[in-house]
């Protein structure tokens, strides 16, 4: 039982790390630009497809993963220049309209280019084994590598935000948008950078997850909504909040699906418990989010609204 728990905890952490990679850029977009971007999940999906395509041509995992980054960066820049930039000053609703449209466009393009059937990406040889956990349980090296890479990215982001000039602007922007607006021309470059970096991180997440899950056109949708949950729980604009909230959501979701029915069985008869468990497990993270917002209407690390 303990081993199973440990295993699921690691799975939850790994899922959380992925959520963090997608959420990190988006929380800044929300917080600093006050921009509702529904199309961020699609970038995660596109990352997966670019990875699959690169693997198809090069056959080399590491080369493909490296190539995903500049491709996503360019895509992020292109979208910023063509669409997002023109919508910063507009209402949230116009932003919803445009980015909802972008979801449709990019999802459909992917279907046209690669079809609707899921694609799979082979795992690199070096990471395809597993290591022993306590007792007979083993855990895949690749998943541990995902956790490691995610932590490294988190550390790098922390360094950028805490120690550099760009980071100072980002922190100032999350705390007080008017202040950043007062900085003038710099702001357009900052926005572009945040968007492009966010797109790259989301695409990177889609790429590294491709050997574990398959790549399919719907993968962006499911992660987008969970990313929102992460951002809101963490507090809009807070990368630190996104990190902790992502782990929390990842672990709660994973453990809930596994142990929810088991715990319920102690309380009611097995058939009812199984049904109740199946019902409640997917709702758990949303209940968590509603609860957090009930007690802290601006999230765990969000700036409080002056009253």
């Amino acid at each position: 039982m303990f081993n199973l728990f440990l295993l699921q905890l690691l799975n939850g952490a790994q899922f959380g790390i992925l959520l963090f990679l997608v959420a990190a850029g988006l929380t800044l977009v929300f917080g600093i630009m006050d921009f509702i971007n529904l199309a961020h999940g699609v970038l995660y999906m596109v990352g997966g497809y670019v990875m699959a395509m690169m693997m198809g041509t090069t056959g080399n995992f590491w080369l493909s993963l490296t190539l995903v980054l500049p491709v996503m960066l360019v895509l992020g820049l292109a979208l910023e220049v063509l669409v997002f930039r023109r919508l910063y000053d507009r209402s949230h609703l116009d932003q919803v309209l445009a980015t909802f449209g972008l979801i449709l466009v990019l999802s459909e393009l992917v279907k046209i280019l690669w079809g609707s059937a899921p694609l799979s990406v082979p795992m690199p040889e070096a990471l395809s084994g597993s290591i022993a956990l306590a007792g007979p349980m083993r855990y895949p090296v690749y998943r541990i590598a995902v956790i490691g890479v995610g932590l490294a990215v988190a550390l790098a982001l922390w360094f950028v935000i805490a120690r550099t000039r760009v980071g100072m602007l980002l922190r100032a922007g999350a705390a007080n948008r008017a202040m950043v607006s007062a900085l003038g021309t710099d702001i357009n470059r900052l926005f572009m950078l945040v968007f492009a970096a966010g797109a790259m991180l989301a695409g990177f997440a889609g790429a590294i997850v491709s050997p574990i899950l398959s790549v399919d056109p719907g993968m962006g949708d499911s992660i987008l909504i969970l990313t929102f949950v992460v951002i809101v729980i963490g507090g809009v604009g807070s990368v630190k909040g996104a990190f902790f909230a992502a782990l929390l959501v990842g672990i709660v979701d994973t453990l809930g699906r596994m142990f929810g029915p088991i715990l319920l069985k102690a309380l009611m008869d097995p058939a009812a418990a199984a049904q109740a468990g199946r019902t409640i497990a997917p709702m758990l993270v949303y209940i968590l989010m509603a609860a957090v917002l009930f007690w802290r209407p601006t999230g765990l690390f969000g700036r409080s609204v002056a009253r």
Binding site: V83, L97, A98, F100, G101, L102, I103, L104, V105, L106, E108, L109, I112
Partner: peptide, 8 residues
């Protein structure tokens, strides 16, 4: 694809 483009 077309519908999305119209929205954008």
């Amino acid at each position: 694809l077309g519908f999305g483009l119209i929205l954008v």
